[in-house]
């Protein structure tokens, strides 16, 4: 069972945990991404996330499907934010339940690592003196 969400309002950690909870689960692994205040020694004021919404949802679904195929996991929730986020706010939550913890850890890491490579979402770092789209240039 999979829940994918793209939202312009704050993400709900408890909702992710409740979705993946299962009587069969021996554990839940949760990754929470947070907005960091520095990048390459430079102070970041906030981040702006933009998504190609329909495709971002279908790509997150594909990753969650793959995680369920690949690892012994029960349920997966992937929630991602769009819009302007301040330092400390949460752009992404991945929650995975599994019968045994190793599979939950492995699947959670696989999902966040793959999401960063394939899901059409873009982040712009906003500094005091300008802004930069992350990863855009070599």
């Amino acid at each position: 069972m999979i829940e994918i969400k793209l939202s312009s309002s704050p993400l709900d950690l408890q909702a992710c945990m409740s979705f993946v909870a299962s009587p069969a689960a021996g554990g839940i692994d949760i990754f929470v991404g947070t907005v960091r205040n520095r990048t390459k020694g430079k102070e970041v004021h906030r981040l702006e996330f933009e998504a190609y919404e329909t495709m971002a949802i279908s790509e997150m679904q594909k990753i969650a499907d793959e995680a369920i195929d690949k690892f012994q996991v029960l349920k997966v929730a992937v929630h991602h934010r769009t819009g302007l986020l301040n330092i400390g706010e949460v752009p992404v939550i991945i929650a995975v339940s599994a019968i045994h913890r190793a599979a939950a850890f492995d699947a959670c890491r696989f999902i966040i690592d793959t999401l960063k490579q394939t899901v059409p979402i873009w982040k712009k770092e906003i500094f005091a003196d300008g802004e930069v789209w992350v990863n855009a240039h070599p």
Binding site: G33, F49, P91, V92, T118, I121, K123, W133, A136
Partner: peptide
């Protein structure tokens, strides 16, 4: 059809 520059979600 969409142009997809380098992604940076998460």
């Amino acid at each position: 059809v969409a142009i997809i520059p380098p992604v940076s979600g998460g």
